[in-house]
């Protein structure tokens, strides 16, 4: 198989350069000259970094433990983040997890925006008008490197959604999607693919993506997710995307108060 991602390491170093020293003017020059792809901007809100970082680390450790204990038919390095209903924090979860995985020395993270409903991830990374996942799945001529964008964070790459299509669920359920994931996992580098999908009850493409995912992270927000909706969402996944058990699906309780956090004592630094 050809090296589809030879540029990852190269763009990585350039991204670092852009991160540390780039200015908006330099970015514009790079884009104008066509030397480099546009760099995705990873911005997160200002919050209690130490606490949030630790909370993401807890999640990451669980997921890495599952990767090491892989014994099933699904690749546990492919992580699908979904929820029952919109606005429960899937995109923020995907970004936070990506940044947390970035700390691992020998791992790279590919963030895929697969939310056909809102494409929030692409918008946040300012890649909304770029070629993306749906373009790749629909156009055989495109290669993976055409839709893979370095970001301002070292080790984190982004795949935007691309132009919306009415056949998005079918495209995501296609073999090309499977091949894309295999390609992303191929190589010597340990790559983790995080797919930010839409909510189960509002986006049927999520079920299609779930068939490819080794780990499904189901987000429920405190005071927002309703029991009936969570039950129904998990039921849909179970019926249409293979068995739902604790080896493949885990829940994350989002938007909780600090008293429920596993990190009890934290300070800003």
């Amino acid at each position: 198989m050809p090296q589809l991602l030879p540029s990852l390491a190269a763009t990585d170093s350039r991204a670092v350069t852009a991160n540390n020293r780039a200015t908006p003017l330099v970015q514009k020059l790079w884009t104008r000259a066509g030397e480099l792809k546009r760099v995705g901007v990873v911005r997160t809100p200002r919050f209690d970094e130490s606490r949030t970082r630790e909370e993401f680390r807890v999640l990451k450790r669980h997921m890495m433990a599952r990767m090491e204990a892989d014994a099933g038919p699904y690749d546990p390095r492919t992580i699908l983040i979904t929820s029952a209903s919109p606005q429960e924090g899937k995109t923020t979860m995907a970004l936070g997890l990506a940044l947390s995985f970035m700390f691992e020395h020998d791992r790279r993270v590919v963030l895929i925006d697969a939310d056909t409903g809102s494409s929030e991830l692409s918008t946040r990374m300012k890649l909304g008008d770029q070629l993306g996942l749906l373009d790749y799945l629909d156009d055989e001529a495109l290669e993976v490197s055409d839709i893979l964008y370095p970001t301002s964070v070292r080790g984190v790459y982004a795949v935007p959604l691309g132009r919306p299509r009415i056949t998005a669920p079918e495209l995501m359920a296609s073999q090309r999607m499977r091949r894309l994931l295999e390609t992303l996992h191929d190589g010597t580098e340990e790559r983790i693919v995080i797919m930010d999908s839409g909510s189960v009850l509002s986006c049927s493409a999520t079920v299609s993506l779930a068939k490819h995912a080794g780990q499904i992270l189901f987000v429920a927000a405190m005071g927002q997710s309703k029991r009936a909706e969570v039950d129904e969402g998990l039921g849909i996944l179970h019926r249409q995307a293979g068995p739902i058990d604790e080896t493949r699906v885990a829940l994350v309780f989002n938007k909780t108060d600090r008293s429920q956090s596993p990190v009890r004592y934290s300070r800003r630094h």
């Binding site: 919050f47 606490r51 949030t52 997921m63 998990l234 909780t256």
Partner: peptide, 20 residues
Amino acid sequence: EQAVQLPVIGTLSWEPAWNT
């Protein structure tokens, strides 16, 4: 956990600045 009989592997605290 009691409702869905699946493990909750973590929580994320709500921060006022989460709204992006």
